[in-house]
Design a protein around this nucleic acid. Sequence first.
DNA 1: CGAATTTGACCAGCGC
DNA 2: GCGCTGGTCAAATTCG
Length: 339
Amino acid sequence: MMVEKREDEMEASADAIPPPFSSQIPSTFPLPGGFFDADGGDKGSVGFLELLGLRDLNQSPFLFELPRPTSAVEPPPATSDPPPRLPPPAESSDTANFPATPSSISSSSTEAAVNAIKPAASSITNGDEGEQAKTNRTTKEEEKKKKGQKRQREPRFAFKTRSEVDHLEDGYRWRKYGQKAVKNSPYPRSYYRCTSAACGVKKRVERSSEDPAVVVTTYEGQHTHPSPIRARGAHQPLPPPSLVLLEPPPPPLGFGFPSSVRSKDVHLPLLGCYLPPPPLDFRPMTAPQPLMLTSDPTTAVAISGDPRHGCNRTAEVSIRDHGLLQDLIPSKIRKEEEL
DNA sequence: CGAATTTGACCAGCGC
DNA sequence: GCGCTGGTCAAATTCG
Ligand SMILES: [Zn+2]
């Protein structure tokens, strides 16, 4: 078990890093393209790649023009979630209902009991505990962090995927380390961490309360190693990183989206770099749905439909902090362990 | 037997 | 200052 001293979420983050940081280029590893196996040993979960099997992140006709739903309120881009909940789900009726998932979703054994999806926000009863016992764990994280607390400053990417299974194989091995009930959702949220030694990438998976078919996967951090799965083959161990990204800290635009993206033309590629292992493929689908905007202006949602299998995939990318990218990447593959 | 998961406890941040 | 909530840890358990 993670007995090693966690680096406390190596964040340290943006508030800690100086604005001008242009010294090294993050050599991100290869994009998810190609070395993903359709199978990876997933037991009952379908892999992303499996669902689609393509990977055109750099040239997909993404639509990153957030229409900007409400400009009246300007949620602080610094915070993680907007205080005011808002059910702007805007769930269309296209894929509102789908056949019940025959396959049993992993995780979830006790909760997931109630499944009443109602817009009303007053069901769910958080677990709540309240009483503490003894066992005082004083050995927690405490090394750095002496200034503003406010942790969690790294970029996060949320992917919305339409899938019956939540375990989207992305080419990495994850260890579940927690699960919590979501406030307004009957579905729990699972917390995963990359099993790699020095890789502190975390992943959060939860189902949309509105659309049980939608799985929201939020990645946090960057992997410092290539996809473990399928290793041992006979292929290139480390593809040459030749990606460009990294831009000066874009000021908080009304968009929230990295200005670099718009300024330059590296929107997609950038994403590719940013995204850890986005196993999704953005083929030129007909895009049944235009674009969805979450409550955050910093969140772009791209939806892709894949009627062929009856499952549509939605990819939502939310970018927030930039800059720590290098923080994570610079370390480059310090150590790579395989499994 | 080892690795992964489960699950309650614990804790920090934020709102009131 | 208290309470709520999200997030993480870690012991126990299950799985392979
Ligand atoms: Zn990793």
